[in-house]
Design a protein around this nucleic acid. Sequence first.
DNA 1: TTAATAGTTTGCAGTGAGTGCAAGTTTGTT
DNA 2: AACAAACTTGCACTCACTGCAAACTATTAA
Lengths: 213, 213
Amino acid sequence: MRERKKRETRAALAEAALRLALDKGPDNVTVEEIAEAADVSVRTFFNYFPHKEHAILGRNPEHLERALERMRTAPATESPLTTMWFVVDDVLRDLEREGELSRRGELIMSSPSLLYQLMMSSFEDERLLTTALAERMGEPTGSVRAALIVSAAGAACRVAMELHKSAPDRSVRDLVAEGFHVLAEGLDPGFDPTVPDETKTNHTMPEEQEGPS
Amino acid sequence: MRERKKRETRAALAEAALRLALDKGPDNVTVEEIAEAADVSVRTFFNYFPHKEHAILGRNPEHLERALERMRTAPATESPLTTMWFVVDDVLRDLEREGELSRRGELIMSSPSLLYQLMMSSFEDERLLTTALAERMGEPTGSVRAALIVSAAGAACRVAMELHKSAPDRSVRDLVAEGFHVLAEGLDPGFDPTVPDETKTNHTMPEEQEGPS
DNA sequence: TTAATAGTTTGCAGTGAGTGCAAGTTTGTT
DNA sequence: AACAAACTTGCACTCACTGCAAACTATTAA
């Protein structure tokens, strides 16, 4: 069938992309090489992936679907972050099983363009997950908490991958789990953004430079 | 002097880039146009910025320096997230003052490539801030909490920018402030990743798909 | 003023990403 | 076998980005 062949081609391209990227460094691989290694034309490569990075990331579209499904069907008694945890855990288990986590993890964290791309595609996911979570929580779209749960979870994953690089003895899942616990219980009980000297005592606090700086 | 002229050229390029991006959409602007608008050659453009996105973002290098300084000199009594807040607030105030926040904010959030690029450069910053914060907290490099404080703060900023788009009545700073409070107090008091049916009752919880999926 | 010099700008040539189009090939259906 | 839909491919093209060497300009020394 066509379906199978397409899946094979896709897999072959992703596999070739990953292998070559690990070999020569992600920035020294050309699409031409990847296509050649998978025995298709360059043009065909772009029929499957919008760009090189996407092929190297080799994301499994199934994961997002499962995640959304899990989110929608979560038992009412389950707290939001807990649901989020199960969603993430599902993906992590899969990746561990496939041995992809260690194979791709470091590669991604060591390459800015890959990391960008991962984030990029994650953002799209985060948006969908946020919507699903807000709905599930019965909060309005635009809920800060729902959005924060999802994106902080993403942050925890990234932090875990980063830390795992320098401390390989702790598994990514372990680090993620710790991150979730910290997030759940509060990042900082002593948080108090009151400005001592100012006239107003309103809750005006400083931010990082995620905004354009 | 040469210094002044370089600063002027840089500013002219950034200004032209932003104006054109707002006009025609970030993806429909070519470097050629930007260079032309700033009266320099294309080649010169690339002497100033590594890519188009960087010019549109037009980040102010001063912000990172001030942030790191603030972090290093924070009073010992100030809790970590509070320090983080002041750091972020400093940048936000600056951007609001310059009117840049509204001008660039939406643009960035509406363009994947810009968002990627912003994250990209933010990651570098986050790394530096994390190191500084861990040191300040007296925690080892590799502290999950320190890393999470920084990257969750980044997440809060992004969420705020995103939500501000659909709810322009709430200022970005306000939304960020709310995010920080939520983070400080805990995302989810009911968090409990225990798997009911499993033999082990260890703290194994599911993750999002920030990892390569 | 003039001459040497160091920093900047620019043109040119080239690689590689990514896209649209039209022609060719494969696969599934009647 | 005939036909249509889906898929692949080559081609031509635009644009991002880089290295190199020539040209220019401000600074400094003589």
